[in-house]
């Protein structure tokens, strides 16, 4: 077949739009359709989580309520409490609600037990420390995802997309705080969402709601004068592993140097 330049251009003009038109239809159609139904605004929020570890009593109710609220499969947790016990000789012993659960194989409650390995007289200092996803401003888990199934929402909450994730596990490896795990039911990455489905409805995350002592606090610092905005301004706050440069949005009031 002889193809001259005129014919070539003619065919090209027919073939190329045939591919491009459906593509652009998809893109334009999608944006127009789903932006209309929202009442909650994705803009203008600055959520922050404050952990006052001096108030934590280690009851583990946060873990239980989180598992109930988020239907976390048995044997996994999205948040947990650690106990740091320093002996007189300077040794630091760390145990967590998660270990206790593992030993007892009981999912009902997540409380601590008496520390049997050290006599009470040997202990110089001990405290509880709740941990959860830090919702880093600079999250190491997001850029490693090959398909964009984990992301930062416009408000800065780090979320996963279980319907798009295919479970490669890179994000689980990338998280320096170890908050991610592979959900054995969906086979996708799973993590704390700060109860995103609750906070968009104006409720508190389940662990904050249930905490009997106010060791966990949550709020929108964009609202001027809100308790959380005041704490953020006034108190001297710490973050876990500041040297990693992840800029966590979970702040700790008092963070002892033993904490890892």
């Amino acid at each position: 077949m002889r193809v001259n330049r005129r014919d070539f251009l003619r065919y090209a003009c027919l073939i190329v739009p045939a591919g491009v038109v459906p593509l652009s239809r998809r893109l334009i159609g999608a944006t127009a359709e789903s932006s209309a139904k929202q009442k909650y605004s994705l803009e203008g929020h600055k959520y922050a989580f404050i952990v006052d570890s001096t108030r934590c009593i280690g009851c583990g109710e946060c873990v239980r309520s989180c598992n109930m609220e988020n239907k976390v499969p048995e044997g996994f947790v999205r948040t947990w409490v650690e106990r740091y016990t320093t002996t007189k000789s300077g040794k630091v012993i760390v145990d967590s609600t998660y270990d206790v659960w593992r030993q007892r194989k009981k999912a009902e409650r997540f409380n601590f037990e008496e520390l049997k390995s050290v006599p009470a007289a040997d202990i110089s200092k001990a405290f509880f420390l709740p941990k959860l996803c830090n919702h880093c401003a600079n999250p190491p888990c997001v850029p490693v995802c090959p398909v964009g199934a984990t992301y930062q929402s416009p408000e800065g909450v780090v979320l996963t997309d279980p319907n798009y994730c295919f479970g490669c596990g890179y994000c689980i490896q990338a998280c320096p705080y170890g908050v991610r795990f592979k959900n054995p039911i969906t086979h996708t990455a799973d993590k704390c969402t700060w109860c995103y489905h609750r906070i968009v409805k104006g409720l508190l995350p389940a662990c904050v709601e249930i905490c009997p002592t106010g060791a966990r606090q949550f709020g929108d610092a964009a609202i001027a004068g809100s308790p959380i905005a005041q704490v953020l301004e006034s108190a001297k706050l710490h973050v876990l592993r500041k040297d990693f440069g992840t800029n966590p949005k979970v702040y700790y009031i008092e963070l002892n140097p033993e904490v890892r």
Partner: peptide, 13 residues
């Protein structure tokens, strides 16, 4: 829609 991810995922969450 909002970034390098499925915008619908936000609504699903």
């Amino acid at each position: 829609q909002y970034g390098h991810y499925r915008g619908d995922s936000i609504h699903e969450n």
